[in-house]
Amino acid sequence: MLQLVTFSTLNGVLYGMLLFMMASGLTLIFSMMGVLNFAHASFYMIGAYFGFEISRRIGFWPAFFIAPVLVGLVGALVERFGLRRVHKFGHVAELLFTFGLAFVIEELVQMIWGKLPVDYRVPPSLDFVAFRLFDTTYPAYRMFMLAVAVAMFVFLLLVLKRTRVGLIIQAALTHPGMVAMLGHDVPTVFMSVFGVGAALAGLAGVIAGPALVTQPAMAALLGPILFVVVVVGGLGSLAGAFVASLLIGLIQTFAVAINLSMGDVFGPAVANAFGDLGRVTVAQIAPIIPYLLLVLVLIFKPTGLFGNRES
């Protein structure tokens, strides 16, 4: 039991941090530009594929630094030549643009790298057992992922709290109109934020690719969950995104460990009254719990847990 709890916690935190790496960029983009970026998970996927392509040519470490930058560039280009044009048609058009973009990116990735998973591996320098606990090994690479995620969180926090750029971004989070009026070059700020957001997602992709499977469906698998994180945490709140990421990471991992069904808790009579629903275990529905959370949070607190704006 203790073993299960320990590992579930570790895995939950790790998964949560991975979600946060993407959610932070998504929240930034959303708060400043009002765009719910459906293609955000696609940048994560591009990151993984770029990471794979670079690391098989010149090694994992160069990929670790180069790939996110490239993804950031792609993001900036998308903003400059796509989103900016659509901006004048309103937020729905912007959202639909990213919706179509996600579709196109998935198809392009399938065309270039094929439909099957690619052989993107953990680099040998990190391919060892970090520690052994109750007879289960914990890979060093997962610790590395955790370290990168934490480092990124600290870096983001420092930039936002201690630098001038951070000040502007913070201001734009809550009062986007005011920031523009103060004379900041809003289009450039938008482009950079979009680029940086994409780069963060790309970084998540580079490090998650070897641990999970690098394949064309990886974006679609994660995309909706990101929205859950951002919305549950509260639109425009980085702290909210952080808490929601960890929350959802932990809920999902712990739910998997629980084999209880209604029948086990209330006895078979109650379970039979509910038909199929009575027999379903918590573990079975683990991946849909976040959506339940999403709907419940939005019903009772439409601004999300930490947010103070609705759109």
Binding site: L36, P224, F227, V228, V231, L235, I288, Y291, L292, L294, V295, L298, I299, P302, E310, S311
Partner: peptide, 13 residues
């Protein structure tokens, strides 16, 4: 956005 997100959540559920 709140409406859109609830519809997404209900759809997935």
């Amino acid at each position: 956005t709140v409406f859109s997100m609830i519809s997404l959540g209900i759809g997935e559920l």
